[in-house]
Design a protein around this nucleic acid. Structure first.
Lengths: 121, 121
DNA sequence: CGGTATCCTCTACGATACTG
DNA sequence: CAGTATCGTAGAGGATACCG
C-alpha cells in the first residue's frame, strides 16, 4: 500500500509506485460495499433472521437482490443459511464469525453517516 | 435503525418496522463505497496529492473516473481542490477535516481486508 | 415461505481522442 | 498537466410473474 515518492528540485512530489491492485480498500468494498450488502450484514448482528424478514428490514430491496447478495455472502463465508423446517418452509440466515468480524466497521460507518447527516444526490 | 419485532406462538420472529430508508449504512456507502472513492480518500491521508499522481496511485482508474469522483468528493466537502500554479498547470487535492474523519473507517476496512485476504470473484 | 425466471432500463465505467 | 468530450458496452438492479 505504500507508494514510493520522489521530490524534485521544485518540491513537487511524484509517485513512483502504484498501490497493489486492486487496493485492499477496493477489495474490502467489493465485499461490504455492494448495494445492500453492508445493510444485510448489519441487520444480522443480533442473530438469525428469516429471508422475508430481512427483505422487509431492507425496505427497498427486491427479493432478487436480497437473494443474490445472500448467496454471495454465503460463498464468502460471511453468513450461514439454515433451513428451519419444511412446512411451512422457513430459512434463516446467520453471521459466521468472519461475518461478525465486519460488524465493527459497519457500525463505525453507520455512526459516521448518522453524525454527519449525509446528503445523497 | 431499530426494527420492532413480534414473536408468534411458535417462536417465530416477524419484523414490523423496516429501518429508516435509506439506511445510514447505505447512505455512508454511497459516499465511501463508490468505486475508487474510498481509495482516493485513503491516498490523500498524508497530505495534498496532484491529479496525475493520484491517478497513478490508483493504477486502474481512468482519468475520467478520478475526475468524476474528485468532483463528487469536493461537493460533499470531503476534499479541497487547490490550483498551485499556472505554468505548468498544477492542481492538488487535499482532505478536509470532514474527509479526515472518514480515514479511521477506511483504515479499519483496509486492515480487515488485508488480514482476511479477500477473494474477488 | 423462500425463492426463480424473465424482461427491461439505465447508468457506471472504460477507451480514446482532444483542449487550454 | 489537468482535465473535457464522445462513444460504446456490460451488467447492475428494479418490476413482475411464477414455482415447489
Amino acid at each position: 500500500m505504500k507508494a514510493k515518492v520522489e521530490v524534485d528540485s521544485k518540491g513537487h512530489k511524484s509517485v513512483i509506485n502504484a498501490c497493489a491492485e486492486p487496493c485492499a480498500i477496493e477489495k474490502g468494498m467489493r465485499i461490504l460495499g455492494a448495494k445492500w450488502k453492508g445493510s444485510i450484514i448489519y441487520h444480522l448482528k443480533d442473530g438469525p433472521v428469516r429471508f422475508n424478514d430481512l427483505s422487509r428490514m431492507l425496505g427497498g430491496a427486491s427479493k432478487k437482490m436480497v437473494d443474490q447478495r445472500l448467496k454471495e455472502l454465503e460463498s464468502e463465508n460471511m453468513v450461514i443459511r439454515r433451513v428451519l423446517n419444511d412446512k411451512p418452509l422457513a430459512v434463516s440466515y446467520e453471521l459466521t464469525e468472519f461475518g461478525k468480524s465486519a460488524l465493527s466497521i459497519l457500525d463505525d460507518l453507520r455512526k459516521w453517516s448518522e453524525n454527519n447527516d449525509i446528503q445523497l444526490k
